[in-house]
Design a protein around this nucleic acid. Structure first.
Lengths: 273, 273
DNA sequence: CGATCGTTTGACGGTGCTCAATCACCGTGG
DNA sequence: CCACGGTGATTGAGCACCGTCAAACGATCG
């Protein structure tokens, strides 16, 4: 029942200590199983070292500007990837869960352009950079999986732009929730009951609004009948209507706003009655 | 009174001719030269067909949802890549010039998730999808170049987010211009004199504001002394100050806004005097 | 039980989106 | 040659939306 485990994440963290190498036992098999790749001949995996690493909530998997040493496959947990501006503003770029790859954007230049922070206690399998191409050449299936993941990362561009291009805050939040729901569905989990691993502030940064506005937008979508919200538990009550909100380019004025106005106004009136 | 004194400097280019047929000759050599890759043994290139294709201004290189057949290396000209929402809204994701690769985001799923449109008469070298991995395996240098480009595409995520996350429209435009200037510098061209290939509406879509706001923001940056703007010709007069504007997370209120207010107000007053 | 952080809601002021008018530029066709 | 319509760019006026500041509440943890 600890939905909100992120108490004092960074302070209790004794320098994001890592439980290394139980990976003395090589976990390359776990990695392949995680990614749904079968290997006929075990000898193909000789010389390939995959270490398993735990990251506590609030801990950093890697830091912006750091030298890239491996790519990471999320086995358990959730991460946020972010970019820190000169003035310290945290721009959240996206969230990664089980089966997704982190740190690939550092493969080519050797430096991490982004930071990855765990949103809950998480586990990753890390594949050292020099082994990436070796393993991919030996296991074409993994190569294909990697390229699929990479393509998905490139399509995140479209998603990010679509998130932040919407003029209305409610539309942005609705699109974010629809994206989240679809990713849950892809992963075989319920697309209606979402357990948000990230704070309102993280969502706010990701969709480009103030965190208070996120709260307000949640309220509006609730009073529209789209959602039931309880802290970080979100239930999608009316996916149709939520998608209708999400697909509005120019705010949700066209269809729903009169209705919303009535409901919000009514709510405000009752609050003052 | 008039800032638009530059007249018809662009109109002299009106005469141009189409030469489509020369693509019969294989241009794999041109492609490698374009990307700065040297090949020792010409026999490595046997069986690899690279065709050259011209796209007129406004023409589509490929369309969203279309079956992917090749990846494209821009040799001459500029393209915008965009995503079309259900209601027809054009979300501009980015711009690609000489040496950049288009269509790579379709490699994995086989379908183009975006559309590419030429902003001027342009030329690309197209490498058929089945040949991509073949050529990359034979020419590791090209493979490296491709991965570099891919990494750059992934970093566009950060750039897009930074563009659209800024609260102030002027800051967004300033960041866009700084990005453009840096890309010009990378390409060895003058980072101070920019010739914008895209319309105000394209810029507006890319940075997530209304196109009228783009005009207004140009005016503000002009009156700040950062820029000299004449239609699509932009000269960066004070790069320091422009970067200062671009690095403001919370609008440019902190340092410059009082000054701007004065200048804008003064301008408005003189206009009505 | 107090402290701290996350979340929600309110009030106000400013920014930018919408609608609109004007101007400059361009290609067309009288 | 000029008149004409079309497009892109700029500027203005009005108002809705959201960012900021502020306060109150709830949750978690020491």
């Amino acid at each position: 029942m600890n939905t909100n485990a992120c108490g004092k994440s960074l302070s209790t963290q004794s320098a994001w200590y890592v439980q290394r190498d139980r990976a003395a036992s090589n976990s390359v098999g776990e990695l392949l199983r995680l990614m749904g790749v079968a290997v006929d001949d075990p000898r193909l995996l000789e010389g390939i070292a995959v270490s398993t690493r735990r990251v506590r909530v609030g801990g950093m998997l890697f830091h912006e500007g750091a030298h890239a040493q491996a790519i990471y496959f999320v086995a358990v947990g959730t991460f946020k990837s972010l970019h820190i501006a000169e003035d310290g503003y945290e721009q959240v770029l996206g969230f990664a869960g089980r089966g997704e790859v982190l740190g690939y954007d550092a493969v080519c230049i050797g430096l991490h352009p982004t930071t990855a922070v765990a949103l809950e206690d998480s586990t990753v399998h890390s594949l050292a950079l020099p082994d990436v191409f070796t393993l991919c050449q030996r296991v074409p299936a993994l190569d294909r999986v990697l390229h699929l993941t990479l393509s998905r990362q490139l399509m995140h561009q479209v998603e990010i732009a679509n998130l932040m291009a919407a003029v209305s805050a409610e539309v942005r939040l609705a699109r974010f929730l629809v994206q989240l729901s679809e990713r849950m569905a892809e992963r075989g989990q319920s697309p209606r009951r979402l357990l948000l691993r990230m704070s309102r502030r993280d969502i706010a940064s990701h969709i480009g609004v103030a965190h208070e506005t996120v709260s307000r937008s949640f309220s509006v979508l609730m009073h529209l009948g789209c959602l039931a919200v309880c802290n970080r538990e979100v239930e999608i009550l009316d996916l149709e209507r939520l998608k209708a909100c999400a697909s509005n380019t120019r705010g949700l004025a066209d269809v729903h706003l009169p209705h919303v106005r009535q409901m919000v106004t009514a709510r405000m009136e009752t609050a003052y009655a």
